Simulated scan of single mutants.
Amino acid sequence: MNVSIDKNSGYCFGVEYAIQMAEDELETSEQLYCLGDIVHNRMEVERLHQQGLRIIDREQLGTLHDCKVLIRAHGEPPETYELALRNNLTLIDASCPVVLKLQNRVKHAFDATQRQNGQIVIYGQPGHAEVAGLTGQTGNRAIIVMNEQDLDQVDFARPVTLFSQTTKSTAGFYRMKQLIEERIAAAGGALESFDANDSICRQVSNREPQLRKFAVEHDVIVFVSGRKSSNGKALFSVVNQTNPRSYFVENEQELEDAWFEGAQSVGICGATSTPMWLMQRVADRIQEIGAAVPA
C-alpha cells in the first residue's frame, strides 16, 4: 500500500510565524503566556506546553501584570491592547499580516458606513478568535452570519458591507453574497448599496483545488486536523465531497484498520493548522496497518 503526504498541506505562513515566535521566546524564557490556543491543534499545543507555553483565557489575562503574552495569528480586538497597557504587559504580537490588513479594512469600512447608516456583516464563525478581533474594529457592532437564517439580523433597506473570516470556504462566501443580493432585491433595495469583499486568505482558498486533485489520486484520504479548526472543517468538506472514502482524525490513535481494506493508495493531508510532524506520524501508523491489512 502506497502512502503519501500532500506536499501542499501543513502550516500556513501565519501559523508558522506564530509558532516560530513562541519557540524563539521560549529559548530564553522558562514560561510564556499565550492568549488562547496558539493553533487549533491539540497535539501541537501539548508539544509547546512542554516547552513552557501556558494557554490563558481573557479572564486570566486581566489578572496578569508585568509579564509577556503572545498574541496568536488570529489577531485581537483593540481592548486587548488597551488592557496590556494598563497592566504593563509586554505583547509578543504574532498576528497574521493578512488578518491585520483585514482588521484595518473592517475599521475603515465601519467608519465609512457610520456616515451612511450602513452595516458591517462578517461571514464567519461566532466566537472564533479571528472574528472577535474583526468585530472589535466595529465596537462589536458587526453582524456575524454563518447561514441563511442569520441574515434575519440584517436590515436590507440599509447599506451592507460584507467581509469574510480569512479561513472560511470560498464557495460558502459567494453563496452568502448571493443570498444577500436576493434579500436586497426582495426588500426593494439597491444593489449599489451592497459592497461584498472576498477577504478569504488565498493561501487557504488555493488549497481547495489542490486538495480536490489530491483526493482523486488516492483510494483513501486521511485528513489530519484539530477538531477546533474552522479551516480544518472547511477543507475536510472539500476532500470528503471529492472522495467519499475520506476520514477525519486528530492523531494516529484514531485510525481504524477497516478504512484501508482493499486500498492500494492512501493520501494524507491536513489543515493550515496541522503540523507536518503529525501527518508524518499518521503516515507511519498507516504503513504499519498496511503491512497487516490484506490489499
Rank of each mutant, 00 (worst) to 15 (best):
L70H: 08
I221T: 05
R175K: 15
L134I: 03
A196Y: 14
S4F: 09
H74D: 11
V266G: 02
Q20K: 13
G118H: 06
D284H: 06
Q149C: 07
A112T: 09
E79T: 05
S29F: 15
R183H: 11
K168D: 07
H218K: 11
A94F: 14
D155M: 07
S169L: 02
C34N: 09
C67Y: 09
E59N: 12
T80L: 02
I143E: 08
S265T: 08
N206V: 07
V69L: 10
V204Y: 13
S199D: 06
T80R: 01
L32D: 03
Q119N: 08
Q137I: 00
R212E: 11
S193I: 05
I38P: 00
I92A: 14
L61E: 09
Y174A: 00
K7E: 14
K213Q: 11
L35E: 10
K177V: 08
V224Q: 03
Q264N: 10
T170D: 13
G262A: 04
I92D: 15
E182C: 01
V224I: 07
I200E: 04
G188K: 14
D66I: 01
L134P: 01
I184W: 04
S230Y: 06
S237T: 11
P209W: 09
S205A: 14
F223D: 05
T274G: 02
E79Y: 15
M21I: 08
M21A: 13
A292Q: 11
Q60M: 11
L211D: 03
R105L: 15
S29L: 15
G267C: 04
R105H: 14
P78C: 02
N8K: 12
F163A: 00
A73V: 04
F156P: 03
F194D: 11
C201F: 04
R58W: 13
G14A: 00
N243S: 07
F248N: 04
F163C: 02
Q210C: 03
R115W: 10
S164G: 11
M1A: 10
D152G: 02
E288W: 05
V39I: 10
A196G: 15
A234C: 07
P294L: 10
Q149E: 13
T80C: 03
R158S: 10
S199F: 03
T242Q: 13
V216M: 12
H40L: 00
T272P: 00
E59Y: 09
R207F: 06
R141G: 03
S225Y: 06
L151Q: 12
F248L: 10
E27M: 06
A157F: 07
K107R: 15
E192Q: 12
F156A: 03
S29E: 15
F156I: 04
V154W: 13
L48T: 01
E23K: 12
R58I: 10
Y17R: 15
A215W: 04
Q280F: 00
V15N: 05
H108N: 15
D37C: 02
G226S: 05
K168S: 04
D37I: 02
I184R: 01
S95D: 14
G75D: 14
Q114C: 11
V293W: 13
N87K: 15
V131L: 08
